[in-house]
Design a protein around this nucleic acid. Structure first.
Lengths: 198, 198, 198, 198
DNA sequence: TATGAATGAGCGTTCATTCAT
DNA sequence: GATGAATGAACGCTCATTCAT
């Protein structure tokens, strides 16, 4: 999988991952060649990338893994502090938008990868199950809210897909204020999920 | 921009556009080379593509233009039949989901293009203004509903972005029933936009 | 398999095959890169080779096929003129040595390919069955001679392998006179196969 | 030529040589890279190979030298026990086939090296004179037999080349029984060399 | 209108080797 | 003795495009 794990190797890998994030975010996945990543990392040859990563797929997975792990850590703390499904939905939206606001290029890179990166046989390189599928996670949250009586009756999958899509779209709208954007989404989805007034 | 427009030329262009749609939808934008498109079109040389389209960008714009024009035509009829903003939002969601259900590969191709295709300098090939920006259109609809008193106060841009994102996400979830999906979205966004009960 | 078959295409393919023969014969299969073949063919880029041959395997098969077809044609005439097994064995040895003497580099190239070229999974690129296995052919000849009573009893396969090995070794010994070499082999194998004196 | 010769150094070299033999025999000389040899030896870096061997040529010569020395030792005992040229030829064939049968991968590796390994300027890495040329040795044996009157008149070089080719071909025919193969070769070459009946 | 032929640039990857401890 | 780190060159192959009919 990788060369021996030492301090320098870890640092090099991190350096290359950062350069890959910037390159993918700016030029798109399809234009993020080893040559461009190497140039951005300030290293002399693409060979150094091949040396630290078995192949492009491993580099790409390392990029996605690094970003998603940090996001999960950041959001996890916020989610565990919330108790009710309504609070959890609010925390999910707010913390995710905050993370996006603070790591815009990392998020852009992951979205590029999730959208474009494919294996040789044409299937997505990042599979939902590899990445503890956020749609499933949200759907579970919605089901719990429905069972507890906080949420109205709706299809949890459709709502989960919509929430994820709304958040991912935010990552591309760098022209809008992330905090205000998050507040709007909270208002939007609380109204969309709460029990209808009798 | 293009060679003389005759019947055969038009037919050839259409044939190539259709092959491009299938190729992009199946293999992704990044893998849709002239060679693969030509093979799918049953054409012996990629030269014929270069002959009918100045370059890849023009072919890609032709693909997007063809699909979006048909979608605009289909949805336009439904939208003109709706009078109130609420009816229009319902019609927008329903007709768009219907169009997606009936033209899944065409939609997949356009989403691929919108997400991935870039000019040489790294900017999106499909710019919002080239394509009579659906977000602006939706935002206008929401503003009219707010002025008429049907909709509550919210940021029309954020809501428009969210609606578009929800619809585009539907195009990728071929596992879900499009009609039921559309009904869920109608319920979701009517609740998200309507005036709060006093 | 290949681009359209026209006069120019055929000529280009032949030109590339000839350059490949020279390159493989002189530098060995492992050093016969597209770049070196292209340089020897006097063409500007390796791309032209890829254009005319699907991949390196197809080029290599074309080389082997061209040489072996010519050899089969040359030897076939001589073999059909021989009637008894003894005459056939003599004709086989003589005509093969003559062909080697007249096409030394082509033979060297084929021997290189047969010895070294492998598919991705490590198996020989040139399989015996693709090339109407000369060992089987010789073994059949020996069996017929044994049945007719001209040849003594021996293992036809071992004898066939030995004859082929002796001939192939001759191809590498460019220092020896091919005609004399052939006559020696005829004497050697006629004695090795004939009935022992009672 | 090499680093200081100590016990551990010798053991390391032997370990690498064994791994190289296996790798070359299984994958072919052209695919036997330092990386693959290191992996098979259970070594973490190719650097260890470069450390113990000046360059690839030296490793390859070490492989060939080790195998050929063992073969020479094994066969030498048998040859010295034979007195007449006929007995020596028999012993040569039998002992060589036996050695092949007992060390098939080592033999395959040496044949790969002899056939494929080249210096930078394209000449064979294993030159006949480096390896106390078996053809010359056999030719001398044949000349002695001719002078003693046991063998008929023939070209000793051609016969020697043929014997070597027949033996080397046996190494590649792992499907055949080595002992029976050896007996057939003995019968074949005794008949090919003995004086013709008057 | 159509095409075969040709092209230079770039791709990810592997190579044996060297540097610096 | 041993090792991780790094390297430039070369590999086969694909790319969109242009040339010349």
């Amino acid at each position: 999988m990788r060369v021996n794990d030492t301090v320098t190797t870890g640092a090099r890998r991190a350096q290359i991952v950062l350069a890959a994030i910037d390159t993918i975010a700016e030029l798109g996945y399809g234009n993020a060649s080893f040559a461009r990543i190497a140039k951005r990392a300030g290293i002399s040859s693409t060979r150094l990338i091949s040396y630290h990563f078995d192949d492009k797929a491993e580099l790409v997975r390392a990029v996605a893994g690094a970003v998603l792990a940090e996001a999960a850590d950041y959001m996890g703390k916020r989610l565990r502090a919330a108790t009710t499904p309504t609070e959890q939905l609010t925390a999910y939206l707010e913390s995710n938008l905050e993370f996006i606001a603070e790591h815009p290029t990392a998020i852009r890179a992951v979205v590029e990868i999730a959208t474009n990166a494919r294996t040789d046989d044409g299937r997505p390189l990042l599979r939902a199950e590899d990445v503890d599928d956020p749609v499933s996670r949200l759907a579970t949250l919605f089901r719990q809210g429905q069972e507890s009586g906080e949420f109205r009756t709706f299809d949890p999958i459709v709502m989960a897909v919509t929430v994820r899509a709304a958040i991912d779209a935010a990552a591309s709208r760098t022209d809008l204020d992330p905090h205000a954007y998050g507040q709007e989404l909270v208002g939007l989805f609380l109204r969309a999920t709460r029990k209808d007034p009798s």
